[in-house]
């Protein structure tokens, strides 16, 4: 009887000691995991704070709508953007001689907005709003040349026809592998040349561009299908 009691007690004692040992070993292995997790959470939180939700950004777009507190514009990638304005927002226009404010902004105007972009709300809090006159750029191929009126009909890559008006102030350049980038002129332009022209839109004709600069590629044929 004593023997059996001794055996049972020995088993219980050994099991208890080992169980306690195992538990301690297990809890010791868990503690660093919890510490690492807490450390990671702290690091991530501080990193997020560092990255900030807002950043400086400058965008360009065409005005869709303007109220006292908000301007809705369509940016160059055709995305609708919401611009918030407040008492710190400064408005400027090169055409305006006097005080220029949000009430002077009209639909269809092109604006440059510099402000704080909120990555969460995707809105920009404007600090500077400027009315811009951005140049129109056309690339395509020379379809025909009007030597009398000094105009060039250009077939654009999307199949449209645009008239390029070449004036006295138009600077024409040419690029070829042989001659590199050189000054050129209206008389050097020939049909089927690839062409890049920039200038302002003719207020009387929306298909005509009053060119300020022209770049032609005499040794590169024009392919209309390219994008």
């Amino acid at each position: 009887m004593k023997k059996i009691l001794f055996i049972i007690l020995s088993i219980i004692l050994t099991y208890s000691v080992l169980s306690v040992g195992t538990y301690l070993a297990y809890s010791q292995t868990i503690t660093p995991d919890i510490n690492i997790k807490e450390q990671l959470i702290t690091n991530i939180a501080s990193r997020v704070a560092q990255l900030k939700l807002v950043e400086k950004r400058g965008i360009i777009g065409t005005v869709n709508n303007a109220t006292n507190t908000q301007i809705t514009i369509t940016d160059l990638q055709d995305n609708t953007r919401f611009v918030d304005v407040d008492e710190f927002t400064k408005f400027t226009s090169p055409k305006s001689k006097g005080v220029f404010g949000i009430s002077d902004i009209k639909g269809g105007e092109t604006l440059g907005v510099l402000g704080l972009y909120n990555k969460d709300s995707r809105r920009i809090l404007a600090r500077f709003v400027t009315v811009l006159a951005i140049p129109k750029v056309v690339r395509g191929g020379v379809a025909s040349i009007d030597n009398n009126n000094f105009t060039i009909d250009v077939s654009t890559i999307d199949g449209k026809k645009v008239i390029i008006d070449v004036g006295y102030t138009t600077s024409t350049y040419s690029y070829s592998r042989e001659d590199d980038y050189i000054r050129s002129g209206f008389s050097k332009i020939q049909e089927d040349y690839s062409i890049i022209a920039s200038g302002t839109l003719d207020p009387k004709d929306e298909n005509k561009i009053l060119a300020t600069r022209i770049l032609i590629f005499p040794d590169i044929p024009f392919i209309p299908k390219t994008k």
């Binding site: 400086k56 440059g112 690839s194 392919i223």
Partner: peptide, 30 residues
């Protein structure tokens, strides 16, 4: 202020591709 940067690549066979970026120069602190 705002600058429109248009990069156009024209290949020797006449194919072309363009990418546009808006970059703003400002020293204003806000």
């Amino acid at each position: 202020g705002q600058n429109i940067i248009e990069v156009i690549a024209v290949a020797a066979d006449g194919e072309s591709k363009s990418i546009s970026r808006t970059v703003t120069y400002s020293e204003e602190d806000f």
